[in-house]
Computed example of a mutant assay.
Amino acid sequence: MTGSFTPASDGIVVVDKPAGMTSHTVVARIRRIAGTRKVGHAGTLDPMATGVLVVGLNRATRLLGHLQLADKSYDATIRLGVTTTTDDAEGEIVSTFPVDGVTAEAISAAVDGFRGEISQVPSKVSAIKVDGKRAYERVRAGEEVALKARAVTVSRYDILDVRVGADAIDVDVSVDCSSGTYIRALARDLGAELGVGGHLTALRRTRVGSFDLKAARSLDSLAESFDWLPIADVAAGTFPRYDADDAQAAAIRTGRPLPGLNLEPGQTAMFDPTGTFLALYEPHGPLAKPTAVFVS
């Protein structure tokens, strides 16, 4: 994951976001480190959260929306017995409940009900827009916000540890879930199911799609040595690859349909004879048509 980066290079950087920093601030730091203005991220992390944040550079910002980043993994700590205004430790305490009657068996049984496809009401301080305004902005302005439930998938919800304290119970969990799942809401809803309330005290994203913590670098590390993935490597590692001849490459560069390629279902990364990544194409009947062209 190294190479000679210039401000005109196109690629992906996997950042290990520190706590206390917004995703927007991470993007601003990467702009300064990389020396380029065109930087964007996939999948916002709350300021209290740490872990994998996938960042696109230059033309790779357009690739982010095509990458398979829907599945994510998290390690988290849920505190039972306390509810907060934000469903996490950054909010003010709303209520407390005695937890002396809550057993590890009861917690395990409650967690079982949140696996698979579930209906989840997002946290009120989420970034979901309500009538054109972010929900968290409305909450901070003192407005009452009611968000609609949405279907999400929790494919793994493992209990790693249960620590019983005098006034609360801390539950360490590991979660695999679909995009749009709110771990804060899982904490809130687990506490509600047990009748004692709950909120999130720690959150670390360990994976986004195929990008995990093994590939992630801290901002300080990136400032010393800018490790990145060229867009061609990301495309070749994510999609089926098609190596075009010169005539086909000329057509691909202008986004023209191509006959008779027999591409696999879904998107295929198209390369020219020099190994330059040109575009993403997909089959449409007898033709292959572009979904996105990355060269001009």
Rank of each mutant, 00 (worst) to 15 (best):
N58Q: 02
A49C: 09
R62K: 09
V15D: 02
A104W: 02
L67V: 02
F5P: 00
S221I: 03
K129N: 11
D172E: 15
L261H: 00
T50P: 00
V26D: 00
R29S: 08
V121S: 08
A60C: 10
S126Y: 04
R207H: 11
V52N: 00
D227G: 04
L53R: 01
F239K: 02
D46A: 10
C177Q: 09
G142N: 06
D227Q: 08
T77A: 14
A28L: 12
S296A: 13
K124R: 15
L258K: 02
L219F: 07
R140E: 06
T22M: 07
T254S: 08
G180P: 12
D167G: 08
A28H: 11
Y242D: 01
L64A: 02
M21G: 06
I169S: 00
D272P: 13
F114Y: 08
F294M: 06
V121T: 15
I33M: 12
K129W: 10
C177S: 06
F211H: 06
D71A: 12
A288G: 08
G113D: 02
Y74D: 12
R253P: 03
K72E: 11
G195F: 13
T254C: 12
Y157I: 08
A279G: 03
P286D: 14
L45Y: 03
L278R: 00
A49F: 12
V111W: 01
L287P: 03
